[in-house]
Structures are given as structure tokens and as C-alpha cells.
């Protein structure tokens, strides 16, 4: 980082915050503050939805994931377009016609207050905890790369978001997201282009693609049916459908985005374009990781991508061991580079025998590299007790900091900060809306005036932001807490989806049946979590099905009881 990078980084962030605060000033009624006066055109709805879903970790981890195990992660998103179609048909017109502020408000008109409060409580619990991690996860990586204190990084991101979300509400969130996503995608494409342009002079785009394919990185589709493994087409289509129905249909962080659409049509179009663009966008981000991988076939990759952690380990008695392993790694690389050049030659000659020979050699060398990297990780873990030696989240950002020209480094860091801010802003805004509308206005202070609720919503936004920052600093002390929060969505999403699907499609089911079915389903899911090792993707499906089936049974029994009593 030099002064140009710092200027670009801070100018970008300050301009976005100032723009969001200025453009959304003067919301004095609750419609303006929580729904942005329903003024968003479809393209802004779409950009907001995409910016909310893609957190900073998406842009840091996804290229690293492709670098390590190829593009198979893409399959996880195959259920998303189907969910967009289903929600466009059902949820969007329902929410718009009932003029709700939150998804949970609809549940009271369809069922009753206790079902609405239960769903709102589940949401506040899972999103309240995960907003802390949305801030913490990128802070950890950024603080390592910039050599900042982790708590200062957390407070920096949290405070920037707090300024415009508290002052401008939903309008500020969606106004800033369209620019944040533009910066994010622009920066990512520039980074990918840089990786490609730094390949040896004569390698074409197609050849880079073929090299990646020969190295097994273009494993886009796996047809085997196994719902406990998230990386096959069926898990993506079935498990992904349930997950994304719940996330986009029943999680206020997303529902709040399309409730701001200016009409049913505009909200629908926003969802439809998300369904059209999401998979190609993930393809591009994953492919950037592949380009970095191909780049490192011809250029020396770091033996361990978290440079700062390796430097710390080099201050200990293990320094000699690590240095020896590193020079061994360098030797292996020279051999690999030669084979990679042979592979390109074989591809050009279109000689299948030579291609296979080169590929087998490279696979053997990669095996050696993997062993050395494993040994280095063991040494670092021994040198720094309790260190997390997973370094795939650092692959992309280390590449950026090492190989991108000054100016672009600042831009790419602005990308990571912007992505963290965009998704945090939606989450804080949704937490505040749900607290204000479903709890405070409904059950605590039902008869206050409009301006009072705007003020209360501002306080709730600030309160959740401070809670998120405090939770992030606790998370820094507890690795297993982070893992728990990362799966907490899976624990509640299935049940919430079951409640909403019963509401949308099963007129037969009434409030008592769905309420008790949801509580039993949640107990079943928690039992599975504590006492079985079932795949998390299955929780969404099981939770949802248990709610629907049980609610049906309870309703049937209740109806029989009423019939008997009336005879």
C-alpha cells in the first residue's frame, strides 16, 4: 500500500457514505424511513438484492475456493433462479397488496400475533448474531493485510455503515448499494484481467482455459445424487431451492430490498434479473480464482498465503524448518513451471498423448507441493498455538497486494470494504425494521405518532450496529462461536420457510396448528444438530417438511375435535 492506494481507498469509502447520507436526508415518516417510499426501479431492486447477498467474504473466499478445489461451488446456486420464479408468483404480490413493512407482519394477517412474533424472534436471533460475523470475517483478513488492530477495523466498518443507515434508513441502503456493487464488480473484473495479462506472453485466453481444465479445475457439474454433499447438481437444485426460498422469501434482509420496489412489477423484475444474473456473476468470481491459479503455474506461489502469520512463525524456533521447506517448495515449482510450459506446448500441438503425460507429471508435482504446504502449516500451527492455518481466504487478497499496480490495490481494498458495508447495511436495516414494526410498534408502543417510530427505528439501527461490533470483538476470542454463527441460519431457516409456505399455499392450516408445528420442528432440528452429524443443507428441507406435515396433522385433529364438540 502506498499513498495513492490509501487516497483511493478512503476517497471511495467517504464518497459512498456522504452520498448515502445526503441523498436520503429528511425521511420524517415511517414509509420513507423503512420502505424508501417504495420508489425503487427494478434495476435498483436487483442491484440491492445482489449487494446484500454478496458479503465481503464472497469476494475474498470464492476465488480462493476455486483456486483450491475448482469451480464446483457454482452448483450451489442452481436452485436460486427457481426460487426467484416461485417468490415472484407468490410472495411479491402478497407483500405488496397487504402493504407490509416486514415479511413477519404478513404472518399476523394470515395466522395470528403469536406466529408472527415467533418468526420475528427467530429472525432477530439468527440475523442479530450473524451481522456481527458479517463485519468480523472481513475485518480479520483486512486487519491482517493492513496491519491494523482487529477491533479498530471492526469499529471502522461498523461506524461507516452506521452513519448512513441510521440517518437515511432503507433509502440510504439501496442508494449506496448500486454504487457499491458497481465498484465491486468493476474491481473484480480488473483483478481477473490483471491475472490473465500477467501470464507468459504467448498464452491466449482459450489456452488458459484449457490449462485449467487439464488441471481438473473446471469441475463445474457433478451429476451424482448425494444431498449430504453440497457440491453436486441435485444438492444445488433441491437444497439450494429450499435455502434460497427461505433467504429471499422469509429473511427481512432480502424482503426489505424488494418491498422498496415501486410496484409489484418492479419488485418482480428485480427478482427475475437476480435469477438471470446471479449464476453468471458467481461464475466470473470463481473464474478469477482460476486465473490466479493458472498464473501461479508460471509464477512462484507463496508456500503459505497468510504472509503475516508466516512472518510471525518465522520469529520462533521453527524458522529454520519453515525456511528449509520453503526452499524445497521453490525447487518443486521450477519443475512444475517447466511441465506447465510443456502442457501448453502439447495443447498447441493438439497431441493427446503428450497432454496426458504433462498432466500426469503436473499432478505428481502438485501432490509434492501439497505435502510441503501441509508440513509448513503444521510448523506454523506448532509455532503459533491456536493459529488458524486455513489460508484459502488469503489467496486472492495476497495476489492483489503482491501483483496489482498501486492504485488498483487501493481500489480492490475498497471493493472488500464496500462489500462488507453493503451486506451489513441491509442486515442492520432489516433488524431495525423488524424490531420497530414487529416488536415495538405491535406490542410495546402501539399508539405513538409516525415521527416517534422513525426516531425509534433510528435508535434500533444504532443499537444493532453497536451489538454487531461488540459481538465481533467477542468472536475474535472464540473460534467455535464463529463456526456456530455460520451455521445458525441452517438451524432456523427450514422452520421459518415451513411457516411461510403453509401461509402461501395451504389455506387449510390455521394459526394454532402452524405455531405448534413450528416449535416441534425447531426442537427436531436442534436435536439433529446436537445428536446427529447430518449435513446442514438437509436441515432446511427437513425443518420445512416437518412444519408443513405436522401442521396438517394438528389441524386435522383440531377440526375433528371441533366437529365432535358441535355434534
Amino acid at each position: 500500500m502506498n499513498s495513492i492506494d490509501w487516497v483511493i481507498l478512503f476517497t471511495t469509502l467517504i464518497l459512498i457514505v456522504a452520498y448515502g447520507t445526503w441523498k436520503s436526508r429528511g425521511s420524517r415518516n415511517i414509509d420513507g424511513y423503512l420502505l424508501g417510499n417504495k420508489s425503487l426501479p427494478w434495476w435498483n431492486v436487483c442491484l440491492s438484492i445482489m449487494a446484500t447477498q454478496a458479503s465481503a467474504i464472497t469476494f475474498l473466499s470464492t476465488p480462493g475456493q476455486a483456486y483450491e478445489d475448482g469451480m464446483r461451488f457454482l452448483q450451489f446456486y442452481f436452485g436460486l433462479p427457481l426460487a426467484m420464479v416461485i417468490l415472484s408468483i407468490t410472495a411479491v404480490p402478497l407483500y405488496h397488496r397487504l402493504k407490509v413493512y416486514t415479511a413477519y407482519e404478513y404472518l399476523e394477517s394470515r395466522f395470528d400475533l403469536k406466529t408472527r412474533s415467533l418468526a420475528a424472534f427467530f429472525f432477530l436471533m439468527l440475523r442479530g448474531l450473524s451481522v456481527g460475523i458479517t463485519i468480523y470475517a472481513p475485518s480479520l483478513i483486512l486487519s491482517t493485510m493492513l496491519d491494523w488492530n482487529i477491533n479498530i477495523t471492526t469499529i471502522f466498518i461498523g461506524s461507516l455503515v452506521m452513519i448512513y443507515t441510521v440517518s437515511g434508513g432503507t433509502k440510504a441502503v439501496s442508494m449506496t448499494q448500486k454504487y457499491q456493487l458497481t465498484i465491486i464488480m468493476g474491481g473484480m473484473i480488473i483483478a481477473g484481467w490483471t491475472a490473465f495479462s500477467k501470464l507468459p506472453d504467448n498464452i491466449t485466453f482459450t489456452e488458459a482455459f484449457q490449462v485449467a481444465g487439464e488441471m481438473g479445475k473446471l469441475n463445474l457439474i457433478n451429476l451424482s445424487f448425494d444431498l449430504s454433499d453440497r457440491y453436486n447438481i441435485w444438492s444445488g437444485l433441491i437444497g439450494g431451492l429450499f435455502l434460497f426460498l427461505s433467504y429471499f422469501g422469509a429473511d427481512q434482509s432480502q424482503v426489505g430490498r424488494y418491498l422498496g420496489g415501486s410496484s409489484i412489477g418492479q419488485s418482480r423484475l428485480g427478482l427475475i434479473f437476480n435469477g438471470l444474473l446471479k449464476i453468471p456473476m458467481q461464475f466470473v468470481i470463481l473464474y478469477i480464482g482460476i486465473l490466479v491459479f493458472v498464473f501461479y503455474q508460471f509464477n512462484q506461489a507463496p508456500v503459505f498465503h497468510n504472509q503475516s502469520m508466516k512472518d510471525k512463525a518465522m520469529q520462533t524456533e521453527y524458522a529454520g524448518d519453515i525456511a528449509a521447506l520453503e526452499s524445497e517448495y521453490d525447487k518443486v515449482f521450477i519443475e512444475k513451471k517447466k511441465e506447465a510450459e510443456n502442457l501448453v506446448g502439447a495443447i498447441r500441438a493438439d497431441n493427446p498423448t503428450l497432454i496426458q503425460q504433462s498432466r500426469e507429471s503436473i499432478e505428481r508435482i502438485q501432490g509434492e507441493e501439497k505435502v510441503i504446504r501441509g508440513q509448513v502449516k503444521d510448523k506454523i500451527a506448532a509455532a503459533i498455538p491456536g493459529a488458524n492455518t486455513l489460508d484459502k481466504d488469503y489467496v486472492f487478497i495476497t495476489f492483489v497486494m503482491t501483483y496489482l499496480p498501486h492504485g488498483l490495490i487501493g481500489l480492490l481494498l475498497a471493493v472488500v470494504f464496500s462489500a462488507a458495508m453493503a451486506s451489513t447495511a441491509s442486515e442492520l436495516n432489516a433488524l431495525a425494521s423488524t424490531t420497530a414494526v414487529d416488536i415495538y410498534k405491535r406490542s410495546i408502543a402501539p399508539n405513538a405518532n409516525d415521527y416517534h417510530y422513525v426516531k425509534a427505528s433510528k435508535w434500533f439501527t444504532a443499537g444493532w450496529a453497536i451489538f454487531g461490533m461488540m459481538f465481533a470483538s467477542i468472536a475474535n476470542q472464540a473460534e467455535n462461536l464463529i463456526q456456530f454463527v455460520n451455521i445458525i441460519g441452517s438451524l432456523f431457516y427450514g422452520t421459518i420457510l415451513g411457516i411461510f409456505l403453509s401461509a402461501f399455499y395451504l389455506k387449510y392450516i390455521k394459526s394454532n396448528a402452524v405455531f405448534f408445528a413450528a416449535i416441534i420442528a425447531e426442537a427436531v432440528i436442534l436435536y439433529c444438530y446436537f445428536f446427529t452429524d447430518m449435513a446442514f443443507l438437509l436441515y432446511n428441507i427437513i425443518g420445512c417438511l416437518v412444519v408443513v406435515v405436522l401442521a396438517y396433522v394438528i389441524q386435522f385433529i383440531e377440526n375433528q375435535g371441533i366437529k365432535k364438540a358441535s355434534q
Binding site: P81, G213, I221, G275, I279
Partner: peptide, 28 residues
């Protein structure tokens, strides 16, 4: 107060993408 063609478009684009990705997986 034609949506269905938009819904079909989403499904067809998804299907085309899956076919392209399947082709890439098997031929590279």
C-alpha cells in the same frame, strides 16, 4: 390491474447454463 414468459426465460437460461457447464466439465 406477460409475466409467464419472464418465468420461462429464467428457467430456459438456467437450463442453457447447466448444459454449457456440463459441456465444459466433460470436454476440458
Amino acid at each position: 390491474e406477460r409475466w409467464s414468459s419472464w418465468y420461462w426465460l429464467v428457467m430456459i437460461v438456467l437450463a442453457i447454463q447447466i448444459i454449457i457447464y456440463l459441456f465444459i466439465t466433460t470436454s476440458f
